[in-house]
């Protein structure tokens, strides 16, 4: 176990180093001079040159990469060209929005997927199963840029239930905050609802073949308590793993949802950074999401290994 964890961690560090290098290299190759992006198109060559010196852009790539990496080790991600603020403070301002969005999405997705998955497994090929498969296959086929206009059309333009865009901090007004986040959460949860349902369904189908389900039925338990008290826990293993892994995926997925609803989260930050060629900001945000993503996946891998009941049984 210890060796496994160590190997995973080394792997993780190597991957992250490669990620940082690839990100820096890629941005270095970006056409367009950031100096013009900052100073405007009419900038004089002298001004551009002095800005290059100021930003260190006149030094070779590997020197800048080395600097960036050593600053990164100290938690310094550099300063945004556009906002003239430190990248880390911009990230920490945007993070709560994205975090709230993703946590609520995961909760909603689990709340919907657990009953759907369990009841679909109860009768494979039955009405509930087929219906669920149909609905969830539409969910997975509708990316946010498709589903959001549809949701907006229904909830905002037709029924006037929720505001279309914008953001209110939870601390300022919890009700307004929730009002603004409902639609983004629904849009973002379509994919996890479908994926979680499918995972839980196939595991539950397998569990329901087990002898202990038969002995639970012989005890006279109701179908509901057999499904939820006996079958759910032994079947929720892949679901939990998937939920852990999807946290990383959802960070990526949040980009478009945030953009569409004008939520000031990580996704909006990266899109605006790309649009204005704000290289330190792009680099910092990409690196940040990659770190979250990789660390999360590694943690789930290790946890999976630790929680695997077969391994636990072998130990006993």
């Amino acid at each position: 176990m210890g060796r496994y964890v160590a190997r995973k961690l080394i792997h993780m560090v190597v991957v992250l180093l490669l990620v940082s290098f690839a990100t820096s290299l890629m941005l270095d190759l970006t056409p367009g001079d950031p100096a013009y992006a900052i100073l405007g198109d009419q900038a004089t060559p002298a001004a551009v040159k002095s800005l290059h010196q100021e930003l260190g852009l006149d030094r070779p790539f590997y020197v800048r990469y080395g600097d960036w990496l050593s600053n990164l080790a100290r938690g310094d991600l550099g300063t945004s060209y556009e906002y003239k603020q430190s990248v880390s403070s911009l990230i920490s301002q945007a993070l709560p929005v994205t975090a709230e969005l993703i946590v609520l999405t995961l909760l909603l997705a689990l709340a919907i997927a657990v009953p759907l998955g369990v009841y679909s497994a109860r009768r494979v090929g039955g009405i509930v199963d087929r219906g669920t498969t149909f609905v969830t296959s539409i969910f997975v086929s509708a990316p946010p840029f498709i589903s959001v206009p549809f949701l907006v059309f229904l909830f905002v333009l037709t029924w006037h239930i929720f505001p279309a865009t914008g953001w209110v901090k939870f601390g300022d007004s919890p009700m307004d905050n929730l009002q603004h986040i409902v639609l983004p959460v629904i849009a973002l949860s379509l994919w996890p609802v479908a994926a979680f349902t499918a995972a839980l369904r196939s595991d539950t189908v397998a569990t329901l073949q087990e002898d202990f389900i038969l002995s639970a039925r012989a005890k006279g338990l109701s179908t509901r308590s057999i499904l939820f008290r006996h079958a759910l826990r032994p079947s929720s293993f892949s679901l939990m793993t998937l939920a852990g892994l999807s946290l990383g995926t959802l960070i990526g997925s949040a980009v478009i949802v945030e953009y569409l609803f004008a939520l000031p989260g990580i996704g909006s930050l990266i899109i605006s950074a790309i649009n204005v060629h704000d290289i330190p900001l792009v680099q910092g945000v990409v690196m940040f999401t990659a770190v979250v993503y990789v660390v999360m996946n590694t943690a789930v891998d290790i946890l999976y290994r630790y929680l695997d009941p077969r391994l636990r049984m072998q130990k006993a």
């Binding site: 991957v15 490669l18 990620v19 890629m26 941005l27 190759l29 990526g252 997925s253 790309i274």
Partner: peptide, 24 residues
């Protein structure tokens, strides 16, 4: 494996956006 994991380490849309902004 390590190279593939590196590509997968980027949230896909983020990587795609980055590539799109780099290229013509």
């Amino acid at each position: 494996t390590i190279l593939l994991d590196t590509i997968l380490a980027f949230p896909a849309l983020v990587l795609l956006l980055a590539i799109a902004s780099v290229g013509a």
